[in-house]
Design a protein around this nucleic acid. Structure first.
Lengths: 343, 343
DNA sequence: AGGAATTACTAATTGGTTTTAACAGTAGCA
DNA sequence: TGCTACTGTTAAAACCAATTAGTAATTCCT
């Protein structure tokens, strides 16, 4: 029966095993490993301990350590569809890299928008005692997250709650719209059309507001006939663009709600024998690499700061002294202009 | 000094707190929570325990449980750039959903191709006693992962080691190339060009092999002048396509190494006044939604089974009885044809 | 010899799981 | 009636792998 006198079963070595091999107590091993300065340990002992550690291939058990120290060193990330989306994933990368910089790990769950998964995911994360939670969505919109979210420090990313009672990190749609419009104005354009999304959402209102403010700031009138709406797809944008270009006094620049619509605008402009950007300049929104960079000419567009939002969310959580709760500030992250060749 | 007689400090309630409130031992609480059948507990006691649990809002501490049971219920995922890539992320989704189905959580680290991060990430995961590890890459290629990978059950995804000593889940490039070519043959095409990648990689050889086999199986000759290579970008593909179409006996179909190149082929075909698919059929590879579905006509292409590969990797890890190691089988996952309108 | 400094250990703690034991009540049986 | 055997119920205690407060044994220095 007693066939293994040395280590028990087939388990990774513990600090205790190291201590036995080095001929010291487990406490000493812990002190050596953690470089504790409050207790003096001779160099000779330290060397012996490290030798034993390497001999056994010991490495700390994070669960035991976390249990004792009450620090799980993990953050949770619950998203609806971010992992699925081709561009919003950079948010996860931003969060993960910021966590990494702090030696924290990221637990990721994608709920596919199902509230039962969302609920369970939250419970799992609470059981794992995450030290902070990011609740993110693919599209910028209002949400009503599960109530238990209040049990842990949470930051919303790309979404917000109606009463603004939770801190949120959201793209500055107004500034984005402003930046796009301003870039066109600075290139000398005076008749700038805006093809907006038609389904109500924060981006729709924000970008329109930015468009208006930019025109106002530069003393240009807002011509209502130049502000159009359609569904966010290539075909509808194509149609609307053609209509815009048939105006007797046609616009010299078009700001599209997103890159897909810019793709439709490109088609229409080329079909009418006009050149980009000489005859009509185009600015998009979203910076979908696969579209924006591949179009001819490459599309100047405004980027959604996904990476930055993920990073900021984690940094916000990390900045929090233990036990305190985050102030429900809504952080607006600027959307940078990505200049290519379409304006 | 003694201002809090009931619970200690400001920490989440423990099983002990529940036991005290319910007037039973901690053991009993554990039995009730885990529905242990080997020990009988009266219904009255169970109710009291559950009442106490709800009153305190207790939930298990996963770290304590994992420590005792030696089951961390977590899997690790180390990738080079998967999180960054617009399409390979579906691999993470597949892995996460499969893990979820087994009540496991996924720890994700993106190394950005840096081996120091890779090394540290692996150590972190070993410290957290992950029950399995997925080592994934964005592009299908050979890798030399850190040696410590052998300390935990590992599955490679979208990559492989030179000596095939680790189980790997990789796309079946040969079948993918075969499928694409076969689809064209079945539509009656006899002169099928293949624009291949020029940088040596498994996909290059595999897809070419599939192309050849399909032609052979249907009794068609392989015309070397129809097999061209160029760098995987729109411009070069455009050039090569134009050259192909200038042949006196021009091909009636083009199989492109990937969707980006198909985009270039589209441009060339349209520029020469030919129609897709009536005059020239096109098949791509990768199924980049943003390109393939947006092109006109929508591109028929072969999809890389990222989701499926992620899922299979996790299922492989889960299928493993404790203590055993996975056989180093190379699993080839089929690449399905996504039919749209370009053939 | 007494006190401080150095060095390392014992034991408590973290929040659970699980084995073993204890105890009360009841039935079986001589 | 008295003893054993069992059953249903709960508790005690060991254990998981670490951290850390408290303490003890040496050595060094006056």
């Amino acid at each position: 029966m007693s066939d293994q006198p040395h280590p028990k079963r087939n388990r990774p070595p513990s600090m205790h095993d190291v201590a036995r091999l080095a001929g010291v107590s487990q406490t000493t091993v812990s002190f050596v490993v953690n470089n504790v300065t409050s207790v003096a340990i001779s160099q000779e002992t330290r060397d012996r301990v490290w030798a034993a550690i390497h001999a056994l291939g010991w490495r700390p058990n994070a669960m035991a350590r976390s249990l004792r120290t009450r620090h799980s060193q993990t953050l949770g990330l619950i998203s609806d569809e971010v992992v699925t989306s081709p561009y919003a994933v950079r948010m996860i990368l931003g969060a993960q890299e910021a966590a990494w910089a702090n030696r924290q790990m990221l637990l990721v769950v994608n709920t596919s928008g199902r509230s039962d998964i969302e609920q369970t995911a939250l419970q799992f994360m609470l059981e794992r005692r995450v030290e902070g939670l990011i609740y993110a969505t693919m599209y910028h919109h209002e949400v009503t997250p599960p109530a238990d979210l209040k049990l842990v420090s949470t930051v919303l990313v790309n979404c917000f709650v109606a009463d603004r009672s939770l801190p949120a990190i959201i793209p500055d749609e107004v500034q984005g719209g402003y930046t796009a419009t301003e870039a066109l104005i600075r290139r000398g354009h005076r008749r700038i059309a805006f093809i907006n999304e038609i389904i109500p959402m924060p981006a729709l209102f924000g970008r329109l507001e930015g468009y208006r403010r930019a025109l106002a700031d530069y003393g240009l009138p807002v011509d209502p006939t130049l502000v159009r709406s359609c569904h966010s797809n290539v075909r509808d944008a194509f149609t609307v663009t053609r209509e815009l270009l048939e105006y007797t006094e046609r616009p010299t620049a078009i700001f599209c709600f997103n890159d897909k619509m810019a793709m439709g605008a490109y088609d229409a402009i080329k079909r009418m024998g006009l050149r980009i950007p000489q005859d009509v300049a185009v600015v998009g929104f979203d910076n979908l690499e696969l579209i924006a960079a591949q179009l001819y000419p490459p599309l100047t567009t405004v980027a959604l700061p996904h990476y930055e939002m993920g990073r900021r969310a984690v940094e916000l959580l990390q900045s929090l002294p233990a036990g305190e709760s985050l102030p429900p500030i809504q952080h607006y992250i600027p959307c940078p202009l990505i200049e290519r060749a379409s304006i």
